[in-house]
Structures are given as structure tokens and as C-alpha cells.
Amino acid sequence: MPVFYDTKIASRLMLGTAQYPSPAILAEAFKRSGAGIATVSVRREAGGERAGQDFWDLIADLGVKVLPNTAGCHSVREAVTTAQMARELFDTPWIKLEVIGHADTLQPDPFGLVEAARILTEDEFQVFPYCTEDLVLCDRLIEAGCRVLMPWGAPIGTGLGLNNVYGLRSLRAHFPDVPLVVDAGLGLPSQAAQAMELGYDAVLLNTAVAKAGDPAAMAEGFARALEAGRLAFEADPMEPRDMAAPSTPILGKAFLA
């Protein structure tokens, strides 16, 4: 099971908490999937409003680790301040660091991401960077102090799956000892299984579950796919080949021609 910053997690599924039809369905999705980490955010609240407290009570009841994000931040300063507010609110040094570089693709700003990761690491945060699969960027993030990498599979909310399997496989090979999480872009359990077959440690997703017709069932589907994919990775899959090779022995076949 994955270990993030010396904390062992009992599931390979990290699940977002946004866009569910109801709080009860959100809770059921966590229960049926056994997801070990919930991602959360911080947003403005008016005086007298209890939305924040009510949401926090719901999350606390799940009994999972909480990973706050800096979603929607487009600058280093905004991301750092948001992280500081999240640390106080959720009482955790963990932060899913998002520094968004493009409004259409929501892809990370690699330059801002490295700068923010360095600032936050020096301030004793434990940073989970939402990044691309670019090897050089990931090297810089490790140099900045990150001990987890979270490359995207595809743009957030698209459900396109693993757009660059070569790049993700390459990352796994280059960082054999760094926990790797596919974060964003997954739409189906088969794509999560593929991430596991590549040797990834976990996946982080939200929309694929929350926007399914039956979110709790889909969450369980992802959990089972992760288990199957991981088993396959550990079982050392066969090498693919171009030419057919009979699986039934030729020797001893009756001569009937």
C-alpha cells in the first residue's frame, strides 16, 4: 500500500469530495470504495454561514486522511497563501499543490509549481504537486523537496484516461522509489487499472465518481480495478510479441489431415 511522507495509507484510491448529488452519496462512495484519502478545498464563507462546519463534520465522520488542495490558484502567492490557510483549517502539513497555468486545459504552470513547492517545503509543508508527466519538471520538484509526484493522466474533468502512457512509464522508471499518483483525467476503472499496471502507487479522481449515474457503485468499481491492476503489476506480466504463438502444445496432436 502507498506511503506518503511516512504515512501508510490502506487504499490506492484518493477521492475528491466535490460535485456529488448529496452529502449522503459522497459518504456512501467513500464507504463502498474504502478510499483512504479525501481531497478538500477552502472557499469564502460569510458570517453566520455554517457550510464550512457542516462540510467538515461530514469529512471528519469518514475517518480518512484529508488532503487540502490549492485548486483554482493561478499564481505562486495565491497558492502559498491558500496552502497556509488550509494548513490551519485542516490541521495537516499535507497540501495538494495546484498552480494552474492555462484556463482551457487547467494544466499546471511548471515554473510557478516548482517555486511554490520550494517555498512551501521550506515552510515545513508536505507537498503533493499536481504536475505533468514531464521528466525534467518532476526532477525539479524532487529537488524542491517533494517526496510524492502526481502527474496528470489527462486534463481535469475530461475522463480521457492516460494520454501519455510512454511518459508515465518513463517517470515510473526514473523514480522507482518516489510514490507516484495519477491525478486527474481518469474516467473509467479500466484506466485506473492501467495506471496500476504501470506500477503507479495510487490514483486521485473526483469527477469520474461524482458524475456517474451511481457514484457509490462507480467508486467501488474503481477500487476493484485498482486492486486488479496492482495484482497484475506485482504478478510480472508477460512481454507482448508481434507474432502469434500457440498456447496449446503442438506435440501429441492427432494427425487427421
Binding site: 475528491g16 469530495t17 466535490a18 460535485q19 456529488y20 459522497l26 481531497t39 478538500v40 478545498s41 477552502v42 472557499r43 469564502r44 464563507e45 460569510a46 458570517g47 454561514e49 457550510a51 464550512g52 462546519q53 462540510f55 467538515w56 469529512i59 487540502p68 488542495n69 485548486a71 490557510m85 483549517l89 485542516f90 481535469i156 486527474a184 479522481l205 473526483n206 469527477t207
Partner: peptide, 10 residues
């Protein structure tokens, strides 16, 4: 002044 509270997130 910004005042924020916990919210849903992905």
C-alpha cells in the same frame, strides 16, 4: 480581507 472555510474539492 479574505475569510475562508472548508469546502468540497477534487
Amino acid at each position: 480581507v479574505e475569510i475562508v472555510a472548508p469546502r468540497q474539492g477534487g
